[in-house]
Amino acid sequence: MVDHGAALLLLADGRFPAGGYAHSGGLEPTIAAGRVHDLATLEAFLQGRALTAGAVAAGFAAAACGTLSDEDGKRFIALDAELDARMPSPAQRTTSRQLGRQLLRAVGAIRPDPRLEHVGARPHQPIGLGAAVAVFGLGRRDAAWVALHESVAGPAAAAVRLLSLDPFSTHAALARLGPLLDELAGSAVAASHGELDDLPAGGAPLLDIAAEDHAVRHTRLFAS
Protein backbone atom coordinates (compact mmCIF):
# COMPACT_ATOMS: atom_id res chain seq x y z
CA MET A 1 0.00 0.00 0.00
CA VAL A 2 1.19 3.49 -0.85
CA ASP A 3 2.34 5.48 2.13
CA HIS A 4 0.05 8.45 2.69
CA GLY A 5 1.09 9.45 6.19
CA ALA A 6 1.04 13.17 5.47
CA ALA A 7 -2.58 13.04 4.29
CA LEU A 8 -3.52 11.06 7.38
CA LEU A 9 -2.06 13.72 9.65
CA LEU A 10 -3.89 16.44 7.73
CA LEU A 11 -7.28 14.76 8.21
CA ALA A 12 -6.70 13.86 11.85
CA ASP A 13 -5.55 17.37 12.75
CA GLY A 14 -7.99 19.06 15.11
CA ARG A 15 -7.50 22.21 13.07
CA PHE A 16 -9.00 20.62 9.96
CA PRO A 17 -11.74 23.19 9.23
CA ALA A 18 -14.89 21.08 9.55
CA GLY A 19 -16.39 22.62 12.69
CA GLY A 20 -15.51 19.87 15.16
CA TYR A 21 -14.16 22.35 17.68
CA ALA A 22 -17.68 23.39 18.68
CA HIS A 23 -18.46 19.96 20.18
CA SER A 24 -17.45 18.23 23.39
CA GLY A 25 -18.66 14.73 22.54
CA GLY A 26 -21.05 14.67 25.47
CA LEU A 27 -18.44 15.79 27.98
CA GLU A 28 -20.11 19.09 28.89
CA PRO A 29 -23.42 17.52 30.01
CA THR A 30 -21.52 14.67 31.71
CA ILE A 31 -19.61 17.25 33.75
CA ALA A 32 -22.87 19.06 34.45
CA ALA A 33 -24.30 15.78 35.78
CA GLY A 34 -21.29 15.49 38.11
CA ARG A 35 -19.99 12.28 36.58
CA VAL A 36 -16.69 13.75 35.38
CA HIS A 37 -14.85 16.16 37.67
CA ASP A 38 -11.13 15.38 37.56
CA LEU A 39 -8.45 13.73 35.49
CA ALA A 40 -9.28 10.18 36.61
CA THR A 41 -12.96 10.50 35.79
CA LEU A 42 -12.12 12.26 32.52
CA GLU A 43 -9.81 9.43 31.51
CA ALA A 44 -12.50 6.86 32.34
CA PHE A 45 -14.98 8.87 30.27
CA LEU A 46 -12.60 8.94 27.31
CA GLN A 47 -11.97 5.21 27.61
CA GLY A 48 -15.69 4.46 27.72
CA ARG A 49 -16.32 6.76 24.79
CA ALA A 50 -13.58 5.11 22.70
CA LEU A 51 -14.95 1.65 23.45
CA THR A 52 -18.52 2.59 22.45
CA ALA A 53 -19.10 5.63 20.24
CA GLY A 54 -15.48 5.60 19.07
CA ALA A 55 -15.53 1.93 18.08
CA VAL A 56 -18.85 2.37 16.27
CA ALA A 57 -17.54 5.43 14.41
CA ALA A 58 -14.35 3.57 13.51
CA GLY A 59 -16.23 0.57 12.14
CA PHE A 60 -18.47 2.74 9.99
CA ALA A 61 -15.62 5.01 8.85
CA ALA A 62 -13.65 1.94 7.78
CA ALA A 63 -16.67 0.45 6.00
CA ALA A 64 -17.47 3.76 4.26
CA CYS A 65 -13.83 4.11 3.22
CA GLY A 66 -14.05 0.73 1.50
CA THR A 67 -17.31 1.76 -0.17
CA LEU A 68 -16.29 4.92 -2.05
CA SER A 69 -14.94 2.97 -5.01
CA ASP A 70 -18.34 1.27 -5.51
CA GLU A 71 -20.30 2.14 -8.60
CA ASP A 72 -23.13 3.88 -6.80
CA GLY A 73 -24.32 4.98 -3.39
CA LYS A 74 -26.41 1.92 -2.50
CA ARG A 75 -24.07 0.64 0.15
CA PHE A 76 -23.83 4.13 1.64
CA ILE A 77 -27.60 4.07 2.07
CA ALA A 78 -27.36 0.71 3.84
CA LEU A 79 -24.53 1.98 6.07
CA ASP A 80 -26.56 5.09 6.89
CA ALA A 81 -29.54 3.00 8.05
CA GLU A 82 -27.30 0.71 10.12
CA LEU A 83 -25.70 3.68 11.87
CA ASP A 84 -29.08 5.30 12.48
CA ALA A 85 -30.12 2.06 14.23
CA ARG A 86 -27.03 2.37 16.47
CA MET A 87 -27.82 5.93 17.56
CA PRO A 88 -30.97 5.93 19.70
CA SER A 89 -30.50 9.57 20.73
CA PRO A 90 -32.10 11.95 18.22
CA ALA A 91 -29.81 14.75 19.44
CA GLN A 92 -26.79 12.61 18.61
CA ARG A 93 -28.17 11.72 15.19
CA THR A 94 -28.67 15.42 14.44
CA THR A 95 -25.17 16.32 15.60
CA SER A 96 -23.63 13.47 13.66
CA ARG A 97 -25.33 14.53 10.43
CA GLN A 98 -24.44 18.18 11.00
CA LEU A 99 -20.78 17.28 11.47
CA GLY A 100 -20.89 14.97 8.45
CA ARG A 101 -22.33 17.70 6.29
CA GLN A 102 -19.69 20.17 7.47
CA LEU A 103 -16.95 17.67 6.78
CA LEU A 104 -18.19 17.10 3.22
CA ARG A 105 -18.41 20.88 2.65
CA ALA A 106 -14.81 21.27 3.78
CA VAL A 107 -13.44 18.27 1.90
CA GLY A 108 -15.40 19.32 -1.21
CA ALA A 109 -13.48 22.60 -1.16
CA ILE A 110 -10.13 21.16 -0.09
CA ARG A 111 -10.07 18.05 -2.25
CA PRO A 112 -13.01 18.00 -4.69
CA ASP A 113 -13.96 14.54 -5.91
CA PRO A 114 -17.13 13.59 -7.81
CA ARG A 115 -17.38 10.32 -5.87
CA LEU A 116 -18.27 12.29 -2.73
CA GLU A 117 -21.75 12.77 -4.21
CA HIS A 118 -22.50 9.09 -3.54
CA VAL A 119 -22.31 9.78 0.17
CA GLY A 120 -25.47 11.92 0.18
CA ALA A 121 -25.97 15.48 1.38
CA ARG A 122 -26.18 14.83 5.13
CA PRO A 123 -24.18 11.72 5.95
CA HIS A 124 -23.44 10.69 9.47
CA GLN A 125 -20.01 12.02 10.40
CA PRO A 126 -18.22 8.62 10.45
CA ILE A 127 -19.56 7.79 6.98
CA GLY A 128 -18.54 11.18 5.59
CA LEU A 129 -15.18 10.72 7.28
CA GLY A 130 -14.65 7.29 5.71
CA ALA A 131 -15.41 8.73 2.28
CA ALA A 132 -13.08 11.68 2.88
CA VAL A 133 -10.31 9.36 3.95
CA ALA A 134 -10.75 7.37 0.74
CA VAL A 135 -10.67 10.56 -1.35
CA PHE A 136 -7.28 11.33 0.15
CA GLY A 137 -6.06 7.92 -1.01
CA LEU A 138 -6.02 6.45 2.48
CA GLY A 139 -7.33 3.07 3.66
CA ARG A 140 -9.75 1.55 6.14
CA ARG A 141 -7.31 1.49 9.03
CA ASP A 142 -6.59 5.19 8.52
CA ALA A 143 -10.32 5.90 8.60
CA ALA A 144 -10.69 3.93 11.81
CA TRP A 145 -7.71 5.70 13.37
CA VAL A 146 -9.02 9.16 12.56
CA ALA A 147 -12.48 8.28 13.89
CA LEU A 148 -11.06 6.90 17.14
CA HIS A 149 -8.66 9.81 17.55
CA GLU A 150 -11.50 12.30 17.10
CA SER A 151 -13.72 10.37 19.51
CA VAL A 152 -11.35 11.19 22.37
CA ALA A 153 -9.29 14.18 21.20
CA GLY A 154 -12.35 16.42 20.82
CA PRO A 155 -13.64 15.82 24.36
CA ALA A 156 -10.09 16.06 25.74
CA ALA A 157 -9.66 19.50 24.15
CA ALA A 158 -13.04 20.55 25.54
CA ALA A 159 -12.02 19.29 28.99
CA VAL A 160 -9.34 21.96 29.26
CA ARG A 161 -12.05 24.60 29.00
CA LEU A 162 -14.64 22.83 31.12
CA LEU A 163 -12.50 21.59 34.02
CA SER A 164 -9.52 22.86 35.96
CA LEU A 165 -7.14 20.64 34.03
CA ASP A 166 -3.95 21.58 32.29
CA PRO A 167 -3.45 20.55 28.66
CA PHE A 168 -0.44 18.37 29.54
CA SER A 169 -2.50 16.11 31.79
CA THR A 170 -5.29 15.73 29.22
CA HIS A 171 -2.76 14.86 26.54
CA ALA A 172 -1.09 12.42 28.90
CA ALA A 173 -4.49 10.73 29.22
CA LEU A 174 -4.80 10.64 25.43
CA ALA A 175 -1.32 9.15 25.19
CA ARG A 176 -2.23 6.40 27.64
CA LEU A 177 -5.28 5.56 25.49
CA GLY A 178 -3.08 5.02 22.42
CA PRO A 179 -2.73 1.23 22.65
CA LEU A 180 -6.50 0.87 23.16
CA LEU A 181 -7.22 3.02 20.10
CA ASP A 182 -4.79 0.98 18.01
CA GLU A 183 -6.47 -2.24 19.12
CA LEU A 184 -9.94 -0.86 18.40
CA ALA A 185 -8.81 0.32 14.96
CA GLY A 186 -7.78 -3.24 14.15
CA SER A 187 -11.15 -4.61 15.27
CA ALA A 188 -12.96 -1.94 13.28
CA VAL A 189 -11.12 -2.84 10.09
CA ALA A 190 -11.88 -6.53 10.58
CA ALA A 191 -15.55 -5.79 11.24
CA SER A 192 -15.77 -3.53 8.19
CA HIS A 193 -15.16 -6.51 5.93
CA GLY A 194 -18.01 -8.51 7.47
CA GLU A 195 -21.79 -8.34 7.62
CA LEU A 196 -23.33 -4.94 8.26
CA ASP A 197 -25.20 -6.30 11.30
CA ASP A 198 -21.85 -7.21 12.84
CA LEU A 199 -20.36 -3.71 12.59
CA PRO A 200 -19.59 -2.39 16.08
CA ALA A 201 -22.72 -1.46 18.03
CA GLY A 202 -21.50 -0.69 21.52
CA GLY A 203 -24.14 1.39 23.29
CA ALA A 204 -23.47 4.06 25.89
CA PRO A 205 -26.73 4.79 27.77
CA LEU A 206 -25.28 7.67 29.80
CA LEU A 207 -23.99 9.40 26.64
CA ASP A 208 -27.43 9.00 25.06
CA ILE A 209 -29.13 10.49 28.11
CA ALA A 210 -26.54 13.30 28.38
CA ALA A 211 -27.06 14.24 24.73
CA GLU A 212 -30.78 14.82 25.30
CA ASP A 213 -30.16 16.76 28.52
CA HIS A 214 -27.72 19.00 26.67
CA ALA A 215 -29.96 19.60 23.67
CA VAL A 216 -32.54 21.40 25.81
CA ARG A 217 -30.06 23.28 27.99
CA HIS A 218 -30.31 27.01 27.35
CA THR A 219 -26.79 27.95 28.40
CA ARG A 220 -23.94 25.87 27.11
CA LEU A 221 -20.38 26.29 25.95
CA PHE A 222 -20.38 23.50 23.36
CA ALA A 223 -22.99 22.56 20.80
CA SER A 224 -22.94 18.91 21.91
Partner: peptide
Amino acid sequence: GACPHTAIRDDIT
Protein backbone atom coordinates in the same frame (compact mmCIF):
# COMPACT_ATOMS: atom_id res chain seq x y z
CA GLY B 1 -18.44 26.25 21.05
CA ALA B 2 -16.49 28.83 23.05
CA CYS B 3 -14.44 29.76 19.99
CA PRO B 4 -16.05 32.81 18.37
CA HIS B 5 -12.86 33.82 16.56
CA THR B 6 -12.32 30.29 15.20
CA ALA B 7 -15.82 30.24 13.73
CA ILE B 8 -15.24 33.37 11.62
CA ARG B 9 -11.59 32.95 10.79
CA ASP B 10 -9.84 29.56 11.18
CA ASP B 11 -12.73 27.17 10.65
CA ILE B 12 -15.52 28.90 8.77
CA THR B 13 -17.40 25.79 7.64
